[in-house]
Design a protein around this nucleic acid. Structure first.
Lengths: 78, 78, 78, 78
DNA sequence: ACTGGCAGTCGTCTTC
DNA sequence: GAAGACGACTGCCAGT
């Protein structure tokens, strides 16, 4: 028995699955770019840090880095 | 100084950032579908389990469920 | 210069680090138990599911499983 | 029916559960320390970065920071 | 093939 | 109460 309710759920699930596939495709593309970067000598892990930093608003980033420096100084992490 | 090397890195980073944006867009869409499902009475958490189960190959799923039942029985999780 | 403020931060950090070490020790122990279980033929991944199920209140678990069955039926995931 | 096999599985599960509880206790303690630090004016998020940095071997950390600076310069993240 | 490291996902907590 | 952000955990992938 597959009534209207079943179909509604099925439709929602299928939309999600389609979107998940798309998302996976993009994620794979990202992975490829990092691999390509690594192949020409860049460090993927540090590139990820860069991406993270660039995501921040400049002022927030500056402030964060200033505090970080303070803490590092306090702990002898020069 | 922005030489060719710098540009290569910048290009790679920008490709990644563009892809990350696309990915986030898709993720937001997925979130919306779950929200819509919840609004009509479905349980999003359980829907996620369904999506996970459907991702598996049928044989693998059957086997997994069989083992799970065995373990549940062994522990009185009737 | 290491004034009182520095020391306060340092002390907090060191307490955290000590606790993190303890936590890692426990996590390693857990990993060992799963490895031991695997060595005698149990499936660690499914054991994790069992642990998750046992964490739930019995009534919540029953209800969840009932809904899950309904959804599975609706999608032909017999 | 609870034969020897069942008991072996049960025993393993129970050991895991006990360890999980301990782990959760420690995690809560860590959370408390961060909360305490925040209460006296420290930034927990940045403290976590410090903890991460201190976990690294000094040479690795220096090298990582050097590369990071290079990349930041290349991207105008002064 | 296995172990360790990393990224992505999931759940929690805080904020609005 | 819901939404958004953050941190923790699990699963996956690469390296050995």
């Amino acid at each position: 028995m597959a009534d209207a309710t079943d179909d509604r759920l099925r439709l929602l699930i299928e939309r999600i699955e389609r979107l998940e596939e798309e998302k996976k495709g993009i994620a794979d593309d990202i992975r490829d770019v990092y691999a390509e970067a690594k192949a020409v000598g860049y460090d993927p892990k540090i590139m990820r840090q860069i991406v993270r930093l660039r995501k921040m608003k400049p002022d927030d980033r500056s402030e964060m880095e200033a505090i970080l420096d303070t803490y590092k100084a306090a702990l002898g992490l020069g």
